[in-house]
Nucleic acid binder design. Structure first.
Lengths: 233, 233
DNA sequence: CCAGGCGGGTGGTCCGACCACTTTGAGTGA
DNA sequence: TCACTCAAAGTGGTCGGACCACCCGCCTGG
């Protein structure tokens, strides 16, 4: 007989748990190829449709990687893939939750800045500086935003914690930033952003973790306070 | 003609983006019911199977809520539902990424403790104290763990940031904690945990944010350091 | 030996049917 | 009149099969 544990909500849900278990227990290694959908369906004792839905669910989470015509593979299980959902959260959040997300970001961003100040290499510091310069050299909002994001991404990477960097990346997703910024057309906003970025860079260059933490917290906190006022007002 | 935007990878992926857009643009409000799968399939110009896969994907992310026999509804879009993925990440992570996750948790947990110290009410403080007492009153590891989790959950809630609490909940998921603890059978581990929890509680009772931050950081950091040693060793 | 094509196998999509569950309201009995 | 029952309609859940689009490796012909 099989293991005969047919309970557990829907059939698809069971399939998801089953596959997750295979990976968690190490029966499936990252990069390894899974049986075909058809075989998997037989193994799990369900139809291909249900199996497919389970695979789709895991694919969305970044756990699996389905390649058309080739097969299904276990994802790299890297932070970036797994936490992609985080960007969706940011996209769909509004009102008070936006403030909460920004508060989380402030906490993590300042921690990352402090770590980066202690660990950053000269090469990475140069990259940070390059994005800062590029951001100051143009007036195209789109380009500014692009370098703004890259600036923060570089710092997060320098912190040496890929997971933290991935979370911050999701929290700073393009649409999120764009939406927050949309209503902030005050002319001094850009100038203030430039000043704050410069302060962060100085702290990094000085290898001063506490200064970096404070500068990063102030940078995010400034936006946070502004948004808080708009939401509660 | 239709809107004629057939690009975008797979059909299912397009459906996911389409539905996400409906919600992001406010065409669908939380709690509202969506058209039936069959109607939705017609609207999107695709088969019911593909539509279902898209719905499934969004359901897994917590964006939608499909109720058998009733209909499909837009989820509450609350932090807890949306960030369930964090639990999956914690479950599937191992090796260096576990350390990274713990580092993220340390940062957030200490921030939450500091916030909680400033904001916690007497009722919540009593609840924290109750879990602390219950944890000290038993030797059943399972029960200890249960109150341990509740202890931290209560503090995270008291911090007043539901999103942060949800993330911490995912990072502290049962299997995650159990797995870390599995190898820590040293007898003094439990005693140490109790001491650390007591220190956190004292800081909360004193409404001292900095002490709470330090105590929480030390608590998580202790586990973190131990795990770091095991991974790198 | 190499280049090209061609076929088998894979995931992607579609269809139609049926099952399981929830909801609703008409009917029935007290 | 009211409350309860239960049956029918509508919904998501599952199934099986068919076909399409794509990848890859073998095999053929040069």
């Amino acid at each position: 007989m099989d293991d005969a544990a047919p309970r557990k909500g829907t059939v698809t849900q069971r399939a998801v748990e089953e596959i997750k278990a295979m990976i968690a227990e190490g029966r499936l290694e990252p990069g390894q190829r899974l049986p075909t959908e058809r075989d998997l369906a037989v193994q799990l004792g369900m139809s291909r449709s249900s199996t497919r839905e389970a695979i789709r669910a895991l694919t969305v989470m970044g756990v699996l990687d389905a390649r058309h015509g080739s097969g299904i593979y276990v994802g790299a299980l890297e932070a970036g893939d797994l936490l992609e959902t985080f960007g969706v959260v940011a996209d769909l959040s509004r009102g008070p939750r936006l403030v909460e997300l920004l508060e989380v970001r402030r906490v993590l961003e300042s921690a990352a800045a402090a770590l980066a100040a202690a660990r950053i290499t000269d090469e990475r510091l140069a990259a940070v500086e390059a994005h800062l310069a590029a951001m100051n050299a143009t007036d195209d909002p789109e380009e500014i935003l692009s370098h703004d994001l890259a600036f923060h991404r570089e710092i997060a990477s320098a912190a040496g914690n890929a997971t933290m960097a991935a979370i911050l990346d999701g929290l700073s997703s393009r649409t999120f930033r764009a939406r927050v910024r949309r209503g902030r057309q005050e002319q001094d906003a850009i100038a203030r952003t430039r000043r704050e970025h410069a302060a962060i860079h100085r702290a990094l260059a000085a290898r001063d973790p506490e200064a970096a933490r404070a500068a990063a917290a102030a940078h995010v906190g400034e936006v946070e306070e502004w948004l808080r006022g708009r939401v509660e007002g």
